[in-house]
Computed example of a mutant assay.
Amino acid sequence: MAFQHQALNSAEAELAELRRASAKVGGSDPVEALREIDCEPETVRDGATKVEAGADQEQDAGRTYAEATASADDNWDGDAAAAYLFDAGNLGADRRRRLAAAEDTAAAGQRIADGLDALARSSASQATAIAGEAASAVQTVLHPPTLPGGAPVTDPLVRQLHEQRMAEAAARVRRACAEIEDAVRRNVEQIAELGDALDGLTEPVASTPAVA
């Protein structure tokens, strides 16, 4: 299954040999580890952009409303005018609060999208760097060394050294996969911090009651 984030798709290709080697020695799957951080920041960014566009429209409507209220203030007198202007002032204040909340939500959405993008890219970069450091061990696991001509290892000492080398390579491959899992896990933990950007923005803005 393809990743949603392009950086993770690219990393998957670079992790192919480590993945094969790990499967041979009973290690974890480094590609599956990356799926924990897979995301689509553009979807979040698009949502924030729509909220921002709605805020712009609200701002235009608020400006028109303010102009109409000012005109009424200039051309209307008496108790009815005073009552209207009082309610109009409350409504205007509500509109401004809602506009500010929408603008804050849009900005928070953009920050979250940027943060998710950075975490996905960081996970991909860390994973490929770790795989690169284990490249020699990966090749040893995938292509075990043999004697010239492909003859089997029969000398006890040579066999012992061969088995030790293979065991060390296998351990190095497993460790690399575990390091990738740890790197991704640390980045996943930071997603909750991005969500904190929306704290206080999800409650509806209370309206000021009009005076009867």
Rank of each mutant, 00 (worst) to 15 (best):
1 M>I: 10
4 Q>N: 11
5 H>L: 12
5 H>Y: 06
8 L>Y: 02
9 N>E: 12
10 S>N: 15
11 A>G: 04
14 E>Q: 15
15 L>P: 00
23 A>S: 09
24 K>V: 15
30 P>Y: 00
31 V>C: 04
32 E>T: 14
42 E>A: 13
43 T>R: 12
43 T>Y: 07
44 V>W: 05
44 V>M: 07
45 R>W: 09
45 R>M: 12
48 A>M: 04
50 K>N: 13
52 E>G: 07
60 D>C: 08
60 D>R: 15
62 G>I: 05
67 E>M: 11
68 A>Y: 01
68 A>N: 05
73 D>C: 09
74 D>G: 14
74 D>F: 07
75 N>H: 10
76 W>L: 08
78 G>T: 03
79 D>Q: 14
80 A>N: 10
85 L>W: 06
89 G>W: 00
91 L>G: 13
92 G>L: 01
98 R>I: 04
98 R>N: 09
101 A>E: 11
101 A>Y: 06
104 D>E: 13
105 T>K: 05
106 A>F: 00
109 G>A: 05
110 Q>W: 09
110 Q>R: 14
111 R>L: 10
114 D>L: 07
116 L>K: 05
117 D>F: 06
117 D>Q: 11
119 L>Y: 12
122 S>F: 05
123 S>E: 05
123 S>V: 04
127 A>N: 02
130 I>D: 01
130 I>C: 03
131 A>D: 00
132 G>E: 01
132 G>Y: 00
133 E>Q: 11
134 A>W: 02
137 A>Y: 01
138 V>M: 03
140 T>A: 12
144 P>N: 05
146 T>W: 04
147 L>D: 09
147 L>N: 12
150 G>I: 00
151 A>R: 14
158 V>G: 15
158 V>S: 15
163 E>D: 13
163 E>L: 12
166 M>E: 07
168 E>A: 13
173 V>S: 03
175 R>W: 10
178 A>K: 11
178 A>I: 04
182 D>N: 14
185 R>I: 08
186 R>N: 13
187 N>H: 14
187 N>R: 15
188 V>F: 03
190 Q>S: 10
193 E>T: 15
195 G>R: 03
197 A>W: 13
198 L>C: 04
201 L>T: 01
201 L>Q: 02
202 T>H: 10
203 E>H: 06
203 E>S: 09
205 V>A: 04
206 A>H: 09
206 A>P: 05
207 S>Y: 05
208 T>N: 13
209 P>T: 00
210 A>R: 11
211 V>K: 08
